[in-house]
Nucleic acid binder design. Structure first.
Lengths: 217, 217, 217, 217
DNA sequence: AATGAATGAGGTTTCATTCAT
DNA sequence: AATGAATGAAACCTCATTCAT
């Protein structure tokens, strides 16, 4: 019953284009059923929302039956929760964590969200935050991650301020939060600014303005 | 707080054409059923999402039967669309209408979104954008409004740049867009930064940083 | 407040083709509302069946509101009944009655049912018989008419047998009934023999064979 | 009375492909749910028409829930279509298969329709033809069968004409068609001639007159 | 005589979930 | 670990009918 998570899902790796992604001996199917369910659910939740994604649909996308999902997750809600938890692994903002990301990396981190390839990440992130506004448990899990990320970013900014890289007159905590707010806004590019997705000059503009926002000199 | 109804859809009212459209006893304008449905739907869509709000629930909240809604709206989708259209009337960003739009007002406009009273507006805006990502027609209607608002803001910034109020080296179009992105991000405060809602110092911080963002000197 | 109805829908009236069918003084609309409802209902019942025709649809076709129908007919069932009664007026088989139709006319009477113009009559007749198999009262009314028609035809055949025009060895009663059965079958031409509708040689064949069937010499 | 299922639709069964398809304990073949649904639907469609038969009613008659029907048929329309296809198996006219079809058997084949036991077959046949006039797909399926049957009968008549059993001056194709028209008319006996159902002398009369109709000598 | 809002029942269909196999 | 039949609730929507105006 306990999540094992030996081989963390690494959701959208086909992007990196690694040549051989078979399992080590080629015998067993490269991905566990559980993993496939999570991936299908993430995609469907992102595209159609939680209520808009039916268990049969998720099952079909995973190549199994609806009933079978219940061998892996107790309910649709639990499946959502697991998807939410996993979503952090594909979200640039959360990934950087241990990296103790240099604050100078922040503008790039944000502007990355303007890329076409991250569409699913954007959609999923929005859906996760929507779900959080409706479900207690999702809210709790998400808050933990969000706060950790913001703390990390705040720390990075603090460090940079002591370095002299960033303007020390700006509250680093608030700066981190506003930074995240802006990233959150970028998640809506697909509906708000569909024409600017993948636009290089827009990306550069975002990069530059965010630098200013967090107090770059 | 009172609906102004400048440009009412004129769906079912132009028929009688009588100049006085009061209710039978002339007392209260007795908010029309149609109006009540729209208000209930807006609230429920905001709180539980489109798919999460059932017609019976909307009806109950409006004090009528589910079937009765169909005398006023052809389908749940059309009801959503009407709610989306109406939502612009309560959204600060759209209300400003470019007319008065001094660019100096922009930071205040954005920071207003951090207030507790606007929770419903925030939720509804998010839901509307979510719906847009799933429904063609909603997307179209929303895009029209979004673009109009961004154009208005862009113009205001241009003017201010010629005035010397704002830094003219910043692309005013992009600035308007990034401004909207940030506002979009602020809509998520309820899940992202619940503790900062209504926080005065945060509000001031947002105000100040946005000023910088759009190039205030 | 008063409906003007300048351009009434005039749905399916070109069939009867009577030259002047205006009301006596030309002032009032040529057809009473009641009449229009009956005609619309007949058409819709014929095309979509009783259950497939909704009161709103009938009302719309009649240029009025569903509620208004209830000023003229107590219920949908009663409307059906009235339509059934009226249907006899457009049905060749019933029309001949008083004519004490010479039996020699019978084959022509039947073969007339193969004409394209009678499509609606065919459909309505079938629907009426279908309704009869489900509704007691309709069954009663229809039985009365059917029996009268068959009696009339039987009598005509009897007369002709005494005349020597028809073979007297054939039971005239049964012959009349079988004749009606055949006509009933012809009602299904639209689905059974769509390609033969309006076909001259088929019509002649039917004419000739029916002559034989009833014992022509 | 037992289904023969010569040409079973093979919808969901080809999967297991095991030779023995008995129920778990080998006792009764335990009529499959699918079969039960089809039988209930056929009965109800015959008695109350397509629109007059609700899915809950069909389900109740089959001893299951309405939702369960959708595990076997995609929609009510598809269920109708399947019922239509199956209906041919119980319809004397289609069963004869032309193979054995001696034309001398035709009068008997038709007069069989006057029997009380065939009431359901009559009602279902009428309903199927009614449905055909309203639904494209049903029309297509029915036309195929109708045409095959008429071709078969036409061939049988041709053969008999060369044998000298039937009058060769009659167009065999038209004769087959008129024969079918008459059978179609007999389907309406329950409403048209309720008192003659099962009547021996009427049956003999029909038999004899049909012989004449197709040119017997 | 007619409207239009409203109801309450009922229609088809989908869904989350369970369970025997 | 998985299937597939089944359930029961609930969804959207339509309908026949009523009634104040």
């Amino acid at each position: 019953m306990i999540r094992k998570r030996r081989k963390l899902p690494a959701n959208k790796q086909s992007r990196t284009a690694g040549p051989a992604r078979r399992s080590r001996n080629g015998a067993k199917p490269a991905e566990s059923t559980r993993e496939r369910i999570l991936k299908s659910a993430a995609t469907l939740f992102a595209e159609h929302g939680f209520e808009g994604s039916s268990m049969p649909a998720i099952a079909r996308t995973s190549g199994i039956t609806a009933g079978a999902i219940y061998k892996h997750f107790r309910s649709k809600g639990e499946l959502l929760l697991e998807v939410v938890k996993r979503s952090f692994e594909s979200t640039p903002l959360f990934i950087q964590d241990s990296a103790t990301g240099a604050a100078t990396e922040l503008p790039r981190l944000a502007s990355v969200y303007t890329e076409p390839e991250l569409k699913l990440v954007r959609q999923l992130s929005i859906e996760v935050h929507s779900a959080a506004s409706r479900d207690r448990e999702v809210r709790r899990v998400l808050a933990l991650s969000d706060e950790a990320a913001m703390r990390g970013i705040g720390d990075a900014i603090s460090v940079a301020q002591r370095d002299g890289t960033l303007d020390p007159k700006i509250n680093p905590d608030f700066a981190a939060r506003l930074f995240c707010v802006l990233v959150m806004g970028l998640l809506h590019m697909d509906t708000l600014l569909p024409n600017l997705i993948g636009d290089k000059s827009w990306r550069d503009f975002v990069h530059e303005r965010i630098s200013t926002l967090i107090g770059s000199r």
